[in-house]
């Protein structure tokens, strides 16, 4: 029960932040990526602002063993830079630039963004369903060391 309430609260904060910051506006995202156009610095402030409470949370994490619900806290991050990380991030970046949408804002704008948002989210969900097969192919092409 508590973990569900926390998930709802966290999602609500995330959605409010995406909406208020203007990150559900594809023109702002593309405007930030478009260094040769009319450059829009907003995204840098959103990223910077989001890092502050998050860095604080990581610092607090080092003082605790478990989360509020008693779940274990995430372990130290992996340092492995593999092909999947690079190829995946490049593919994601191209899509992000094309539509000006990433997964969080596409859900935040789903209620009011019109049919274009349904098309994007449907394609994104399809992509996520295909991803395990693409991942398996990449694993075969570039075996892990």
């Amino acid at each position: 029960m508590l973990r569900h309430a926390i998930a709802l609260l966290s999602g609500g904060l995330f959605g409010s932040g995406l909406f208020i910051s203007g990150m559900t506006d594809t023109a702002k995202v593309q405007g930030w990526l478009d260094v040769f156009g009319d450059w829009d610095p907003t995204l840098a402030f959103v990223m910077g602002g989001a890092m502050i409470p998050m860095a604080l949370a990581w610092w607090m994490r080092s003082k605790r063993v478990t989360a509020l619900t008693g779940e274990p806290l995430p372990p130290a991050p992996s340092k492995e830079i593999d092909t999947k990380l690079i190829v995946g991030s490049v593919l994601f970046g191209i899509g992000w630039g094309l539509a000006g949408l990433c997964p969080g804002p596409s859900i935040a704008a789903l209620s009011y963004g019109g049919p274009g948002l349904y098309v994007f989210v449907a394609a994104m969900v399809t992509g996520m369903a295909i991803a395990p097969f693409v991942r398996a192919r990449l694993d075969r092409a570039v075996p892990a060391e």
């Binding site: 998930a7 999602g11 904060l13 932040g17 502050i52 998050m54 949370a57 989360a67 806290l73």
Partner: peptide, 16 residues
Amino acid sequence: GGLLIGTGGAVYLLGN
């Protein structure tokens, strides 16, 4: 908005 996004992330991390 960024501060709210980060707070959401902090709640998710320390809560769940």
